[in-house]
């Protein structure tokens, strides 16, 4: 029998919420049986995705909301973040040249790359006004 479970929270798109979002996801990842290292990877991937929503989808408008959902099943732990802001276009994304960015004193721009490195699968969906990023890790 396959056991499936789902959990969700809806939070303001504010950096003040990042720690709570990280802790919510990390708690469930640990309960799902991931190693400390995997829990850390998941915690960081969610932080990066949530920070990108705050910055790029909502342009730091803390009145906006982000829904964070966790679903598990078939040995896979999936986190989804959905927003109603400006959509991210994965087709226009290029791997960052960190050395060049440092030379140009450009900060950031590495979150999407980190998420890809930390998780097994990353998918972006758009449904009407909703954007969703789904990040999965196998147990």
């Amino acid at each position: 029998m396959v056991t499936k479970s789902k959990y969700s929270i809806t939070v303001s798109a504010s950096t003040a919420q990042i720690a709570d979002v990280r802790d919510f996801v990390a708690r469930h990842a640990a309960a799902y049986g991931f190693s400390d290292e995997d829990v850390h990877d998941i915690r960081l991937a969610v932080d990066e995705a949530y920070t990108n929503v705050i910055k790029h989808a909502y342009n730091f408008d803390a009145s906006k909301k982000v829904k964070v959902k966790i679903s598990t099943g078939n040995g896979k732990f999936t986190i989804s973040l959905s927003d109603e802001g400006t959509a991210f276009d994965p087709a226009s994304y290029e791997k960052p040249d960190v050395a060049e960015r440092v030379m140009l004193r450009k900060r950031g721009g590495v979150g999407v790359y980190l998420i890809q490195k930390l998780m097994d699968d990353v998918e972006y969906r758009k449904d009407g006004k909703y954007n969703e990023i789904l990040m999965s890790k196998k147990r």
């Binding site: 960081l44 990066e48 920070t51 440092v102 030379m103 004193r105 450009k106 950031g108 590495v110």
Partner: peptide, 17 residues
């Protein structure tokens, strides 16, 4: 205990200066 890319970004922005 923890760093995200926003933290790394601070070093990216200032080290060359």
């Amino acid at each position: 205990d923890y760093i995200s890319s926003a933290g790394l970004g601070v070093f990216m922005a200032y080290i060359e200066d």
